[in-house]
């Protein structure tokens, strides 16, 4: 019985504060150990701080909910969470696209260089050396 009554409204607040702190510390450790580059961690850190602020200042959620016209204030937390996740995923898609493009260029250049190297070494029988004449 005492266990149950101990779970009042502030318990979740402590958990949230602790969770946010652990999250932010984890991100900083990952950056420190060079597991994540700074530029890719900015969004994560930003939302970590947002959730820390929300858990310390509980009234803020009510304020946001009222401004946005959300009847049930805790639902606002899901909205913010979803925005956070979607923006990070879009950011990752942009990065992947850029890396794919760079990767393609590298593969093309490696292929072309290997061919020129082979021909210059004389490993290739092709009889048209016009492209590889010394300037």
């Amino acid at each position: 019985m005492t266990m149950l009554t101990n779970f009042d409204a502030s318990t979740i607040q402590y958990i949230s504060i602790l969770g946010s702190i652990i999250f932010i510390v984890l991100m900083i450790l990952l950056i420190r150990n060079r597991k994540i580059k700074e530029e890719f961690s900015i969004l994560w850190l930003f939302f970590g701080i947002v959730f820390f602020v929300l858990s310390v200042w509980r009234g803020s959620l009510e304020v946001i909910a009222r401004i946005l016209g959300i009847a049930y204030a805790p639902a606002a937390i899901f909205l913010i969470l979803i925005i956070a996740i979607i923006s990070i995923l879009i950011h990752l898609s942009v990065i992947i696209s850029k890396i794919t493009d760079q990767n393609k260029i590298l593969i093309q250049e490696v292929g072309l260089l290997k061919m020129e190297f082979d021909i210059l070494k004389g490993n290739c029988k092709i009889s048209d050396p016009e492209n590889f004449k010394a300037d």
Partner: peptide
């Protein structure tokens, strides 16, 4: 390569026809 009539670019990975 064994035909001796073409330059050959061996791309190290498959990047698709466009690439």
């Amino acid at each position: 390569k064994s035909t001796g009539e073409a330059f050959i670019v061996n791309l190290p990975c498959n990047i698709g026809i466009g690439g």
